[in-house]
């Protein structure tokens, strides 16, 4: 039976949702699931982790030098407790991507990056070429599986579990060669297009730079980032950095709402990994409706105010 250890991600206050998603992936692998939480003053985070469905045990390693996620420090702690685990999983976030390969190298194995599906406990599906191909990857027999879990592919596990929490102290001292200075969160009130969970986008159908205000307004109501199609950028409604698509940004928010966007293949390339795509367009023949999860034919200038009212 597999014995799985998940490295938790958190911001010092609460558990990042990516951890709950890793748990779902671990459930698909099957076996005993433990979670390791590193940091200082992490009781509530550890309790949160222990509440995730099918988690057996949370190992909370509490030390001042672990409060910042310095890969070299965390990797040392993982290796100190890794014995006996068949799988070491982390989220495919910037934290997991920084940390897990360091662990894999020290364990002498290659890492499986971005698990999107589990075929068998040692066989996985993962995307390559920016998601343009999906491959099956098999970890050689006897090797520890070190992997990152592609967050967009998994739902968060429920918080109906009741695992135990075991608090430990750090096994190593802080490395001297790396010093944490600080974190500046992504500025501005509107989330960054690339990392936003929700994105509201406008196309040429929005009609003008002035009209784009309605897109911003709805986005702010939803706490969403704002994107645009190339047609809207070319028409000068919005700056180039808002472009979503082949020659713009490739994004994968949970919710993508496209207003007045026809859905040219060049645009769709940029949102093919989005969770749910909502399309609102006057033209019922627009190709966007062929890939939208929810479509609504109508005038965006009428629909957006209605949506805002309903969201109040």
């Amino acid at each position: 039976m597999s014995k799985i250890l998940i490295i938790a991600e958190h911001d010092g206050q609460s558990l990042n949702i990516s951890t709950a998603k890793c748990v779902t992936c671990a459930q698909a692998i099957g076996g005993n699931i433990d979670i390791a939480v590193f940091g200082s003053g992490i009781e509530t985070i550890a309790a949160e982790a222990a509440s995730l469905e099918s988690v057996a045990r949370v190992i909370a390693v509490d030390a001042e030098h672990l409060s910042a996620p310095i890969a070299a420090n965390w990797a040392n702690e993982v290796l100190a407790i890794a014995d006996g685990y068949s799988h070491l999983l982390g989220p495919s976030t910037t934290l997991g991507k920084d940390l897990m390969p360091r662990i894999a190298a020290l364990a002498g194995v290659n890492q499986v990056s971005d698990i999107m599906a589990v075929n068998a406990p040692t066989s996985f599906k993962r995307p390559i070429y920016a998601g343009n191909a999906i491959i099956d990857v098999e970890v050689p027999a006897g090797a520890t599986v070190v992997a990152t879990v592609r967050i967009a592919s998994w739902q968060a596990a429920a918080t109906t579990g009741g695992g135990s929490v075991e608090v430990r102290s750090a096994s190593s001292n802080a490395v001297k060669h790396t010093r944490y200075v600080g974190l500046k969160s992504g500025g501005g009130e509107r989330p960054d297009l690339q990392s936003a969970q929700r994105v509201v986008s406008g196309g040429r159908g929005v009609g003008s730079e002035e009209n784009f205000k309605v897109i911003y307004s709805l986005a702010d109501k939803l706490g969403a980032g704002v994107g645009a199609s190339r047609a809207a950028v070319d028409a000068g409604y919005v700056p180039n950095e808002m472009q979503v698509g082949q020659t713009g940004k490739i994004i994968s928010p949970d919710l993508y709402m496209a207003f007045g966007i026809s859905g040219a293949i060049q645009h769709v390339t940029g949102i093919k990994d989005a969770g749910t795509i909502v399309a609102i367009n006057k033209d019922s023949e627009s190709p966007i409706f062929e890939i939208a999860d929810i479509g609504l034919v109508g005038d965006l200038f009428k629909i957006i105010p209605e949506l805002e009212k309903l969201l109040d």
Binding site: A133, I134, I135, D136, V137, P140, K272, G295, L296
Partner: peptide, 20 residues
């Protein structure tokens, strides 16, 4: 310790959803 790379597949196509 190479991982064994098996089958390659194109990404799943998005399918048409519902209209409201």
């Amino acid at each position: 310790g190479n991982l064994e790379i098996g089958h390659y597949a194109p990404p799943p196509q998005r399918e048409q959803g519902i209209m409201v």
